[in-house]
Design a protein around this nucleic acid. Structure first.
Length: 353
RNA sequence: GCACAGGUGGCCGAGCGGUUAAUGGCAGCAGACUGUAAAUCUGCCGCUCCUUGCGAGCUACGGAGGUUCGAAUCCUCCCCUGUGCA
């Protein structure tokens, strides 16, 4: 995937750095871990410090000193997760800031403007993440909205995408925009959503990639897998296909082998801060008393900088003592584990390297 | 020595005659986290037993007595702590 700031090998896992920070780890560490693209959030950065301020400071890459690729989520997921604070209309969403209660509104055009200002390599269309469970009529309404917003996001993006241009040896490089498939847990709606998004590509001016959203919202895991399997074949294989918000280690491997190119998930980072480590031996809740004097590495099969240097007993101690280093070390390991899974999948899919 | 203020479950700290094994918080133990309102949230947290139940028994609010149908809560004496004055 040739992006302005990075040629990204796929399938790829993208650590989530919502507020311009992959929580607990510094950018140089992310680089050394092999993270090639990370995700940031339109909604959060719009509220604080403000996209205009970031634009004045040279864009998000420069602001956060992240030289590699960056994808911004459109704020569509916040429409879902901040459900108590928002109101959805055809035009867009009005909502209250979770920070200070102030009133704001997002439209597809506005979301795209913010993402252009931030200067992400990949922007996401503004969508409505359908909740689970949702009755069919609700999923249809949500889908109708998301498709209309996709059209508007695309139109607006087309006429403004050249506002941010990077030049390198390959020529002028601009931002990309991905469309998002919704449709709840209804296969036919999912199919319709995918087809309609793909149809928006007339004379090569459509979306640069496609995402499957609205998953991992509480539905059974098998259902998530079924929906992905249903939708994936309908999306052009010559463009990146991205499943949003997944998953557990075993899941991301399965999705990658199914042909999913991109995934993101807060799980490795959030769970790390809460003391849950993902290892080759399964879940390891490092808070456990059983590890109080366990001098072995978190994951014997892992060669990350944490596993090479620190013991389970020490990590448990840091967790118990509430030391900030706890979140940092746990996050480094979990990200190394996730990125390692993707690296192995890539190697097995493209053995020639 | 005198005067006040106090002594409550591992710790801090409510309660000041009866749904009180005793509010809270911390610590401890276990669990959950899937496009991050998350360094968050949930459960357990005196002991024993079992048919694990808004179960049974036991032991508990410095100590010993007393008042009362009933006391962590009221009274008496004693012990201890803090502060002030000698």
């Amino acid at each position: 995937m040739h992006l302005p700031h990075r040629t990204v090998e796929t399938p790829v896992f993208m650590p989530v750095g919502t507020a311009g920070s992959v929580k607990a780890v510094a950018q140089d560490v992310l680089e050394s871990l092999g993270a090639e693209i990370i995700l940031a959030n339109t909604y959060h950065l719009y509220l604080r410090p403000g996209h205009e301020a970031i634009k004045r400071m040279g864009g998000l890459h420069r602001f956060m000193s992240w030289p590699r690729a960056l994808l911004t989520d459109s704020g569509g997921f916040q429409v879902f997760s901040l459900s108590g604070l928002r109101k959805v209309t055809d035009d867009g969403v009005s909502f209250r800031s979770h920070l200070d209660g102030s009133s704001h509104s997002f439209t597809p055009e506005h979301s795209v403007d913010v993402q252009i200002a931030l200067g992400a390599d990949i922007c996401m269309a503004f969508d409505e993440c359908t909740e689970y469970p949702a009755v069919r009529s609700r999923a249809m309404e949500s889908l109708r909205l998301t498709m209309a917003w996709a059209r508007r996001s695309l139109d607006h993006f087309r006429s403004h995408r050249d506002e941010v241009v990077w030049r390198d040896e390959l020529g002028d490089r601009t931002q990309s925009l991905f469309g998002i498939v919704q449709g709840g847990m209804y296969r036919d709606l999912r199919r319709e959503s995918a087809e309609r998004l793909v149809e928006m590509d007339q004379s090569g001016s459509g979306f640069d990639g496609y995402a499957i959203g609205g998953l991992s919202v509480g539905e059974p895991r098998e259902l998530t897998m079924e929906i992905v399997a249903e939708v994936l074949p309908l999306l052009p294989a010559n463009k990146p296909r991205y499943v949003m918000g997944v998953g557990y280690p075993d899941e991301i491997e399965l999705y990658a082998r199914m042909g999913v190119d991109m995934m993101d998930c807060v799980l490795p980072t959030r769970a790390a801060r809460h003391g849950l480590l993902f290892t080759s031996e399964g879940r390891l809740n490092i808070k456990g008393k059983a590890f109080a004097e366990d001098q072995g590495p978190p994951d014997p099969a892992c060669d990350c900088m944490v596993c090479r240097r620190y013991s389970r007993a020490y990590l448990r101690h840091l967790m118990q003592a509430g030391e900030a280093l706890s979140g940092t070390l746990n996050t480094i390991h979990n990200l190394a584990y996730y990125l390692g899974i993707m690296e192995r999948v890539r190697e097995s899919l493209h053995p020639e390297g």
